[in-house]
Each structure stands twice: as C-alpha cells, then as structure tokens.
C-alpha cells in the first residue's frame, strides 16, 4: 500500500460524495414544491422500460466485438432466461436457470 492512509480516505470520500451527487441531482432539480414539469412526468413514466433495455445491452457489451465462442454462452443463456420467463414467469427460476447454464457453458466451450 503505497498510498497514504489520508490520501486513501480522501479518494474514497470523493468517490462517495460524487456518486451521491449523481443520484441526488433529479431530486434537487424536480423534487421541490413546484413539482415536476409535464415533460419530466412523462419521462418518469416511460424511462424505466427504456433504461432497463439499455442496461441489458450494457450487460451484453462484451459481445461486441463478437467474442467467439464465449459469445455463444452469453446469447444462449439470455435466450434461455427469456424462454424460461415467458414459460414459468418465476423470476428466481429464470435467473437461476440462465446463470447455471451460463456457468456450465463457459466451462465447456
């Protein structure tokens, strides 16, 4: 550990404060008494689906550039999660099924 104790504390504190600031921003901007403008209310309603879709892409970002053959494990497991969930509609079953398959596949491929 070459960084001094105090330096390390300051680095962690800086990261903590800045992280909180990013999470606080919408509440500071639109959480006041004046309430939310209509456009923001609309965004609040439609953003979750869109953001979760982006997060799915984010999780699969390793596929680009296509990593052969590891990409197969990822794509196949995602497909299994989707099928399992459409079929059983049980969150834990879908996640466990897909994750176990993925863990097996990356060892086999």
């Amino acid at each position: 550990m070459s960084t001094s104790f105090l330096d390390a504390v300051f680095i962690i504190a800086t990261a903590a404060v800045c992280t909180f600031v990013t999470r606080l921003l919408p509440f500071v901007l639109f959480g006041g008494k004046r309430g939310m403008p209509k456009a923001v209310k609309y965004l609040a309603a439609v953003l979750p689906s869109a953001i979760i879709a982006v997060l799915v892409v984010y999780c699969l970002k390793g596929l680009v550039p296509l990593q052969w053959p590891k990409g197969i494990a990822e794509l196949a497991s995602v497909a299994v999660v989707i099928v399992l969930h459409l079929w059983k509609r049980n969150t834990l079953v879908s996640i466990a099924g897909g994750t176990i398959l993925y863990m097996v596949l990356i060892r086999l491929i």
Partner: peptide, 13 residues
C-alpha cells in the same frame, strides 16, 4: 451472469 439475467427478466416482465 445473474445480474444480466435479472435485467433480462425485468425487461421481459
């Protein structure tokens, strides 16, 4: 991968 699976499940839902 369970994190990826979580996001996929929520998207399907």
């Amino acid at each position: 991968f369970s994190m990826t699976a979580l996001f996929v499940v929520i998207l399907v839902e």
